[in-house]
Design a protein around this nucleic acid. Structure first.
Length: 444
RNA sequence: CGGGGCAUAGCGCAGCCUGGUAGCGCAACUGCUUUGGGAGCAGUAGGUCGCAGGUUCAAAUCCUGCUGCCCCGACCA
């Protein structure tokens, strides 16, 4: 992408409504624009990141055996009346009427709808287990939206729903999502720690929040330091096998958010292994048994001819929230430091003297080579001053920047800059490209 | 939903107390000079001062009501 043809409305000054760093940086980097409290338009740069995160979430859901579908944003109220939640949900639910005065709502979640779909088609235990998910916009009319996309009213979320014959198979479904989540967050370049969550009387030990550690996080968290070095299951993990050893390893060490913090249990952790930090919830998985299948009559026939309600679980990842969470966890005074897997561009060419024949030619060459090598490359071909260009690249967080100017070219060199470390190296164009390709291969 | 604050050009702000021709910085546009970490000079354009009432000869400014947005708390992916 040539910057001169791109839509990147960078702000030099910080809009006053933005308090936390991810919100400030997303506005300054031209990623999004607020349209109303907690409602945002995603501009090209922001959308690229959102889509990259979405893609990783999707790949890991598919790998774990979940099946993608897509449910609508607007739902009929009938389903919610049937489950008994229409009145319970209160003012957080955006209620609307269609032209026939039928009660509708903008979906805050999809348990009812997925249960309706399930019960219409699935009748036999032979069709289980089943896990259906979608990635869709949702709306919760929060009293006080804040922190930009971290707590918007409209948000983009992956939610998966598992259906099983009994609690034991539901536990296996839960474990599959647990492992999928470990992999997902690791691929997003984050340290996410599963922490035991309260799920009411039904869930028992099957409810976890996945918390990303970030110094600017919204809630205090306490955990065992070894969790930071716990190995994340690789691509070859067999989701048909017994995953409980992995889950057990991750859940045997102390980890709790401040509301569930147990000072005594934490004191039992060796002192040099204790971590008190801050974190952001980016995922939540839980088992809720027959909470919806019972009232909504979602039953299957067992091998011995009984009709029993299915055991369900649901598994959410806040995709749009993750954009903010990643920034909270990875930024510096100059701007965003994207993990390679979600960066809006893989690498950039910075032309320090647009209009200079030799510089232009070298930039075009490197830009072409980057694309040929499979990079999503950004070429700053504008005639801005060098300082402004550097500031923009750092602000939007392009991981690798190749700086080309007449001074360097005079000695046959360009500069390769690493956004995360700030390291700059003067190299021949060939060496710079080789290094880029090698680094990219190592990172993926 | 309790408490607090803000609303003036695309963005950040001053002006309001003490009513009288709406200003500054950045961004934009034009020209010249600059050109390796957010350039300088000169010029141009851009605002029914959130909305509606009221007071007044006169309202951005004073009064009343409304709306929107932000922050703290309670609540939530």
């Amino acid at each position: 992408m040539r910057l001169s043809r791109y839509f990147l409305p960078i702000l030099k000054e910080t809009p006053k409504e933005a308090e936390i760093v991810s919100h400030r940086l997303m506005l300054r980097a031209g990623m999004m624009r607020q349209q109303a409290a907690g409602i945002y338009s995603w501009l090209p740069l922001g959308l690229k990141v959102l889509r990259k995160i979405e893609g990783i979430v999707r790949e890991e859901q598919n790998r774990a055996g979940a099946l993608e579908m897509l449910m609508p944003t607007v739902q009929p109220a009938d389903l919610w009346i049937e489950s008994g939640r229409y009145d319970d949900y209160g003012k957080e639910m955006l209620r609307i009427s269609d032209r026939h005065d039928r009660s509708m709502l903008y979906g805050p979640t999809n348990e009812e709808m997925i249960t309706e779909i399930f019960r219409s088609y699935v009748r036999s235990f032979r069709d289980l287990p089943l896990n259906l998910y979608h990635i869709q916009w949702k709306f919760r009319d929060e009293v006080r939206p804040r922190f930009g996309v971290m707590r918007g009213r409209e948000f983009f979320m992956k939610d998966a729903y598992s259906f099983d014959l009994d609690k034991e198979s539901a536990r296996r479904a839960y474990h599959r999502m647990f492992v999928a989540y470990l992999r997902t967050f690791a691929r997003l370049g984050m340290q996410a720690i599963p922490m035991k969550a309260d799920s009411g009387p039904i869930g028992g030990d099957m409810s976890h929040e996945f918390i990303v550690l970030a110094s600017t996080g919204e809630s205090g968290v306490f955990c065992h330091k070894d969790l930071l070095d716990m190995p994340v299951p690789g691509e070859d993990v067999d989701f048909d096998s017994d995953l409980s050893p992995i889950v057990d390893a991750w859940t045997s060490l102390y980890a709790a958010t401040d509301e569930k913090h147990d000072e005594a249990a934490f004191a039992a952790v060796p002192e040099d292994r204790r971590i008190a930090a801050r974190g952001i919830e980016v995922g939540h998985i839980f088992y809720f048994g027959t909470k919806y299948s019972d009232p909504m009559n979602a039953k299957v026939t067992t091998a011995d001819g009984q009709n029993v309600p299915v055991h369900m679980g649901s598994y959410g990842i806040g995709v749009s929230r993750l954009v903010g969470a990643i920034i909270e966890a990875s930024h510096d005074d100059n701007g965003i430091i994207w993990p390679a897997s979600v960066a809006p561009f893989d690498a950039a060419v910075v032309n320090l003297k647009q209009g200079d024949a030799a510089t232009d030619a070298m930039c075009e060459r490197l830009y072409g080579e980057m694309r040929a090598a499979g990079f999503d490359a950004l070429y700053d071909d504008t005639d801005q001053r060098a300082g402004a260009k550097f500031a923009t690249m750092d602000l939007i967080g392009v991981p690798w920047q190749v700086v080309v100017g007449p001074k360097g070219l005079a000695s046959g060199e360009v500069e390769l800059k690493n956004r995360a470390t700030g390291e700059r190296a003067s190299l021949t164009p060939e060496a710079a490209m080789n290094r880029l390709v090698a680094e990219a291969r190592g990172a993926s």
